[in-house]
Computed example of a mutant assay.
Amino acid sequence: MARVGTVVDLFCGAGGLSEGFRQAGFEVLAGSDFDDVAGKTFAATHPEATFVGGRIQELSVKHLLAVTGLKPGELDVLVGGPPCQGYSVYNHNRGVDDPRAGLFREYLRIVKGLRPKWLVMENVSGLTSIADGGIIKEIQAGMHELGYEVDFKILKAEEYGVPQERRRIFFIANRIGAPIRFPLPTHGKDLKPLTTIWDAISDLPKVENGRGEEGQKYAAAPANAYQSELRGNRKTVSNHSAPKLSAVNIERMKHIPSGGSWRDIPFDLLPEGMKKAKRSDHTKRYGRPRKSDLACTILTKCDVHWGAYIHPEQDRALTVREAARLQSFPDGFVFHGSRTEQYVQVGNAVPPLLGRAVADALIACDHSLSAEKAVA
């Protein structure tokens, strides 16, 4: 595939968003992140790019231009997702006073110096409820002041083939007068069928609680196009070991049927803190999803106590590879660090398929990009 444009990824993490752009035909020149372990994953999976570690506050435009070989105004797309924990719907103390809530201003500082043609910034959908939408207004105003037309929309990952319920807000902007359009859904009612949990993980080998080895062979041939695409040419599976859960958790899981949850656990086996819970509370805790379900949002740990992260058939938690499949990461993405750090990298990422849909939307709007792709 011929290159259709260049990308730099700020707050890149393991590189889910840049992977989506790469799949659409873009060349990823650099990624930057404070998390050096995620940086090892990014560097290993983006050998064509330069990883720049360290705090975003200390990242200079001069250094980015040096490592990319670009001049101001030459970069096609600057993408990035400022750390969102300050805004997350899972953070009940979220707000503008959270020190992580101002990192988008660092993104805008880099924009001012790089002058890319396009901007793509993503974040959690909860951003809309902070300060009566004040953060969104500030982001838009900041982009306008730098000469960009901007729009935003909340996208549903499952509508683009990702086997997971995930909502993300995307800001798309450009300074070249091109129209701004968001990707049209490809999956759902009257479209392609949604990709289910079992569509995503059924070919992976069985592993026992607390067990698993690198280099296991797949359990079966690819059962569908999703598995074929994510497997590529790989013959063995990485990052596929199950965290060791306690004996009491294993006993709890034995009582949870497909589609069940904590409500199916005998009262005397419930954690003490849940014995006082109302039946309407904690709806995802100790959830065992049906094979035909979408996954719940993949967070930075697949803890069965906090969500529906029990394997549909086996009495164990989801592995990092299963979480990565539910995020649409190719199996060639080998996550570095401890298993805890690997879960964080997967959960923090933009699903590559969602990133690819956004990238394709940019190509469709920008004639200079789409012309190159047509030649390819």
Rank of each mutant, 00 (worst) to 15 (best):
A376K: 05
F267E: 05
A376S: 10
Y226A: 15
G307F: 07
K153W: 12
V77W: 03
I201L: 07
R115Y: 12
Q342C: 07
K71W: 05
D203K: 01
Q23V: 11
E158C: 06
S370P: 04
L353E: 13
C12N: 08
L108S: 03
I176L: 06
A2D: 14
T297W: 07
Y286R: 03
A376H: 02
G81W: 00
W306Q: 14
D132K: 01
P222S: 12
R175D: 14
Q164F: 01
L353C: 09
T186Y: 01
C84K: 00
E372A: 04
C302H: 06
I298C: 05
N209W: 02
Q327N: 10
D97H: 12
D35L: 06
A371V: 11
T6Y: 04
T319A: 09
G134A: 11
F170S: 04
F335M: 05
I169Q: 04
V344P: 05
K156A: 13
T300Y: 06
I130Q: 02
A247R: 03
G212H: 08
E341G: 08
K244S: 15
D203F: 05
A43T: 12
P257E: 15
D33L: 03
H305P: 00
I130C: 06
N239A: 07
R321N: 13
A225F: 03
V207Y: 07
V320Q: 02
G81K: 00
A43H: 02
G102D: 10
G69T: 10
S280A: 07
F182A: 07
N224V: 12
A247Q: 06
P330Y: 13
C296Q: 14
L245Q: 07
E122L: 02
A364I: 08
L119K: 01
R94G: 08
G53F: 09
G232Q: 02
P83K: 01
Y343V: 05
K275F: 06
L354H: 01
P205K: 00
A220V: 15
R105V: 12
S202N: 13
L354T: 11
K291V: 15
K235S: 10
Q227A: 11
R115M: 15
G39P: 10
Q85D: 06
E341P: 08
I130M: 03
V350K: 00
T283P: 00
L194T: 10
I139W: 00
P312F: 15
I197W: 03
K301W: 13
P351C: 13
Y226W: 09
C84E: 11
E165M: 13
G307M: 09
A374I: 12
A242V: 10
I298H: 06
G337W: 02
R252S: 04
L75F: 01
E313F: 03
P312R: 15
L155F: 09
D9Y: 04
L17V: 10
Q85E: 13
G15R: 02
Y160V: 15
S338R: 11
S125T: 11
S246D: 10
S338Q: 09
D360C: 09
V7N: 02
S228G: 15
N91F: 00
I135D: 11
A364C: 10
K117V: 09
G259Y: 03
R339P: 08
P257M: 15
S241F: 14
E19V: 11
R285S: 04
V8K: 00
